[in-house]
Nucleic acid binder design. Structure first.
Length: 461
RNA sequence: GGCGCAUUCGUCUAGGGGUCCAGGACGCCGCCCUCUCACGGCGGUAACACGGGUUCAAAUCCCGUAUGCGCUACCA
């Protein structure tokens, strides 16, 4: 049974990098019929907040990634918040102490900092100097941290599902802290205890954790616990090829939601950053991604986030949606609620990539800036509209065009451009056979919309 | 500094020794459709970081170099 987890630290909104890690975990779980778990890593008291946890969980839900076990819904291995598991970490640390691989360290941060600097200047690796390992003390009253002693046989090799074999030498590691002097565990410790307790089978996480795996495997070995499979996903970079951050503009999932991106498009785009479909397609739905997602198709090189391609993809999703499905989303995005909205969406949707753009492309309905056009032409149009009424479908528009052709002697661009200008007040927009019926109908149900006849009358001085 | 990971068109990628003078997508350019803007269709532009090996044959395997990134914390 595969069990995977996404383990965010609640220090802000969900980031696109974190979102992709969550997506890969979720896809992997769904593909294998396994369990997807959310675990909140809030051991950093200074940066973690309860509000952030709510935001991150909301962002995950918005993306449509639902979990089987988590801090809000519980599960067989609750609690799923590390701050609520400190007793468990202390318990494991005591066990490790008994086994003689962990010791109390009474060195102060200042002392350690000074030694690190010294080592750096001397060109030595900035590893812990083993002072408290050599002078072992079991004074529980004085403030102390719990430190892990790297054993002589501390070489580690893992078989990463994305990167293949990765090996570290014992010498590349100094003794490291498991429990801070304030009683809270460090990341490398809590992650091992939790992944073991929660029976995680596959640890799929960002590449920044790759070298941490060396420490973690050592802890698994000291506890004689089964070691999970690891898969380290590369980072997402900004256009300048540095790790994506606030400097690059919007980086949180919620910011993209507000900018008018759709959850499905975001899931698709982020999945595409690092994973490729076996048949090479790049527009795919969740079901396809679930059915085809395997780790061996995940690219180990970092990927640059490309807003242009993301926008294009979002457009593909908008174009493929029905006007009825789009209506509530557009409503929410631009706040225009009218009886004619659905028809209007259908007329203009191919010209938008982002939800808020509907406001702009619908302006020809909601506003009218009187253009200056040939008076004789305007009169002909006004006469036709009075005699035949405003066209309500494409055929009626075509019939009107034929009559205007005869009445004015104009054709092609000479006819359509002034007509477009007169009807919409703009020199661009959806095809007239759809725009004019929309205006006709919209003006009947909405007094705020000028009818075709009212428009042409404004053109006549 | 040490250790680790990475390196195919501007970007996302396909590619697992011969089918690759490298395929697809976004972008860009051009053409078509067309009253316009989009949409759509067609075509074009553009890449195996560098240097050594191994091999009859290397984008693909090995070794170096360069560059980028990560870790080297009582951050995660």
């Amino acid at each position: 049974m595969t069990r995977v987890r996404f383990a965010p630290s609640p220090t802000g909104h969900l980031h696109v990098g974190g979102a992709r890690t969550a997506i890969f975990n979720w896809l992997f779980a769904k593909h294998s019929g396994g369990t997807f778990i959310i675990r909140v890593e809030d051991t950093d008291q200074a940066r973690s907040t309860a509000e952030s946890e709510v935001m991150v969980l909301d962002d995950l839900r918005w993306l449509g990634l639902l979990w089987d076990e988590g801090p809000d819904i519980g599960g067989p291995h609750a609690p799923y918040r590390q701050s609520e598991r400190v007793n468990r970490y202390a318990e494991v640390a005591r066990e490790l102490l008994t086994r003689g691989v962990v010791y109390r360290c009474y060195c102060t941060e200042e002392e350690l900092e000074a030694k690190r600097k010294e080592a750096e200047v001397a060109g030595r690796p900035p590893h812990y100097d083993l002072k408290c390992w050599i002078n072992r003390r079991d004074d529980d009253q004085s403030p102390h941290a719990m430190r892990f002693h790297v054993p002589d046989d501390g070489d580690v090799t893992i078989d990463d599902l994305i990167r293949g074999e990765v090996t570290w030498k014992r010498e590349s590691l100094g003794d490291f802290i498991l429990i801070r002097s304030d009683g809270h565990p460090t990341y490398n410790f809590s992650v091992v205890v939790d992944d073991h307790d929660m029976q995680i089978s596959h640890v799929i996480r960002a590449e920044e954790h790759l070298t941490n795996t060396h420490r973690q495997v050592l802890i698994y070995r000291a506890m004689e616990w089964a070691i999970p499979q690891f898969a380290h996903v590369s980072l997402i970079l900004g256009q300048d090829r540095t790790k994506l951050s606030k400097r690059h503009g919007a980086t949180s999932v919620s910011a993209y939601a507000e900018a008018g991106f759709l959850p499905d498009a975001m899931l698709n785009y982020l999945t595409m950053l690092g994973w490729s479909a076996p048949d090479g397609r790049d527009v795919f739905d969740r079901q396809y991604a679930i059915e085809n997602f395997t780790l061996d198709r995940v690219n180990s090189a970092p990927a640059v986030f490309d807003p242009q391609k993301f926008e294009w993809l979002n457009g593909q999703y908008i174009h493929a949606m029905s006007a009825a499905a789009l209506r509530p989303l557009v409503l929410q995005s631009i706040g225009i609620d009218t009886p004619w909205l659905e028809e209007a969406i259908d007329v203009v949707k191919t010209s938008v990539h982002l939800l808020p753009q509907f406001r702009e492309v619908l302006r020809f309905v909601t506003e009218y800036n009187t253009p200056s056009i040939d008076q004789a032409f305007a009169t002909s149009v006004a006469d036709d509209l009075r005699e035949h009424g405003a066209p309500h479908d494409a055929d009626a528009v075509k019939a009107m065009n034929e009559r205007l052709k005869k009445a004015t002697g104009l054709k092609g661009k000479e006819l359509f451009m002034p007509l477009r200008l007169a009807m919409t007040g703009m020199d661009h927009g959806p095809e007239l056979v759809r725009a004019i019926p929309l205006l006709a109908r919209a003006s009947e149900s909405d007094p705020g919309v000028l009818s075709p006849l009212a428009r042409i009358e404004q053109c006549i001085r």
